[in-house]
């Protein structure tokens, strides 16, 4: 009986992979994401120039063989700056999403598993938090506690966990009352085994999908704040900050706006397509038709 469960659960993932690999846009997204992650990890090794290197005599130049994406007004290589900025943008995206994931899964799982009054209270809190204007609160936090990158992770993560909690809770709730969980219960399996073998694997799909969709929205939030000057602070850099600088000089040096803009948009594009593709592949409701 054990082996048949294994077979079934692995075929779910195999099915999902087959479906995903048929979705060209999602594969394109996955490829872009892999390239970005590898580039970000290797940036200190492969960046053409050093991050601090300035060349005031050179100034802003348009793309050339020495500087593929041109240089900014301080003569700094744009490709290097975009690579380092991408590291920060991706890091914010992944870490803040991880924060949101941990809070959301714990909150939702506890509410869904215990149900009853615990669930009612916990979900009412989520409902109330939903009504709050979070963008305003993040700005408020950044003003009060200074613009610090750790706070940014925390503030964004603290905002984005609500939907995750709702998804996990409804998933756990629905699973708890399924016949196969009842069957496992009557077979005398321990609670922990049921959670491990039945609840977690069945919750994983929606969680993965929502995670993939949360990362781009977190990155967008960071870029938004950095653009306003309320997020990442120099000398650190992120794509939002580079766009902010680009806007100041776009009349004379439009490439300083366009290249970081392409980097950000392409990444958001890739992640959104990957998320959509994963949803089509993993959501059992969508796979019926």
């Amino acid at each position: 009986m054990n082996s048949s469960i294994e077979e079934n659960s692995s075929s779910l993932w195999k099915d999902a992979w087959i479906k995903l690999s048929k979705n060209r846009l999602a594969l394109f997204g996955l490829a872009i994401l892999c390239i970005l992650i590898i580039t970000s990890l290797l940036t200190p090794l492969i960046a053409p120039y050093s991050y601090e290197a300035q060349n005031l005599e050179l100034g802003a130049t348009s793309p050339s063989i020495q500087h593929w994406l041109g240089t900014d007004i301080f003569g700094r290589d744009m490709l290097t700056r975009i690579m380092y900025g991408g590291r920060v943008s991706l890091m914010v995206g992944f870490i803040a999403t991880a924060v949101a994931l941990v809070i959301g899964i714990l909150w939702g799982a506890v509410a869904g598993f215990f149900g009853g009054r615990v669930d009612a209270v916990m979900m009412r809190i989520v409902d109330m938090l939903y009504a709050l204007p979070f963008m305003i609160f993040i700005i408020l936090l950044m003003v009060v506690f200074g613009r610090n990158i750790l706070l940014l992770f925390f503030a964004i993560g603290a905002v984005e966990w609500l939907t995750m909690a709702r998804i996990v809770r409804s998933q756990v709730m629905a699973l708890r009352n399924q016949e196969f969980v009842e069957a496992a219960n009557s077979l005398g399996l321990s609670q922990w085994t049921i959670i491990r073998r039945h609840i977690i694997p069945n919750t994983l799909g929606p969680v993965i999908v929502y995670t993939t969709l949360t990362i781009p929205s977190v990155m967008l939030l960071e870029a938004f704040l950095s653009f306003l000057g309320l997020g990442i602070q120099p000398p650190q850099s992120s794509w939002g900050l580079l766009i902010n600088y680009g806007v100041e000089t776009m009349e004379e040096f439009p490439w300083l706006l366009i290249f970081p803009g392409i980097a950000l948009s392409l990444t958001l594009f890739a992640l959104n397509f990957l998320g959509d593709g994963l949803r089509d592949a993993l959501d059992p409701r969508a796979s019926k038709d």
Partner: peptide, 22 residues
């Protein structure tokens, strides 16, 4: 629409200004 979602306003705005304004 997907491009619209991935093109944040702080990028779209300056680009529109660049093209139609400048």
């Amino acid at each position: 629409a997907m491009i619209g979602i991935c093109m944040p306003s702080f990028l779209l705005g300056p680009l529109l200004v660049l093209v139609f304004g400048i």
